[in-house]
Computed example of a mutant assay.
Amino acid sequence: MKKFTSKAIVTLVAAGLMSSTVFSADFKFKFQSSDPAGVKNFELQQDWADRVEKMSGGRIDIDLLPTGAVVKHTETMDAMKLGILDGHITSTSYFAGKDPAFALLGGTVGAWSDTTQLLQFMNFGGGNELMEELYAPYGVQFIAASTTGLEAFVSKVPLNGVADLKGLKMRAPEGMVQKVFAAAGASPVNLPGSEVFTGLSKGVIDAADYTVFSTNHAQGMHDVAQHPVYPGFHSLPLIDISMSSKKWNKLPEDLREILKVASRDFSYNITNELKMADAVAVSEARANPSITIHDWSAEERMKFRAIAKTEWEKAAKASPSAEKAYKVLIEYMETSGLL
Rank of each mutant, 00 (worst) to 15 (best):
K7G: 06
G16S: 09
S19C: 10
A25F: 02
F29M: 15
K30T: 13
S33N: 06
A37H: 09
V39A: 05
K40Y: 08
Q45V: 01
H73V: 12
L82K: 15
Y94L: 14
G97T: 06
G97Q: 08
A103K: 12
L105H: 00
T108C: 13
L118T: 01
E129R: 12
E133R: 14
E133P: 02
L134M: 07
P137N: 07
V140R: 03
F142I: 02
S146Y: 05
T147S: 15
T148F: 03
E151D: 12
A152W: 01
F153A: 02
V162F: 00
D164S: 07
A172M: 08
A183K: 11
A183P: 01
A184Y: 00
S187V: 10
P188K: 02
S194D: 12
V196H: 02
G199N: 09
L200A: 05
A207Y: 04
T211S: 15
S214H: 14
G220C: 07
A225W: 05
N249G: 15
P252E: 11
R264V: 05
F266R: 12
S267K: 06
T271A: 15
E273I: 12
V280H: 06
E284V: 13
N288Y: 10
I291K: 11
E299M: 05
R305H: 11
A315D: 11
A318E: 15
P320H: 09
P320C: 09
P320Y: 03
K324V: 09
Y326K: 05
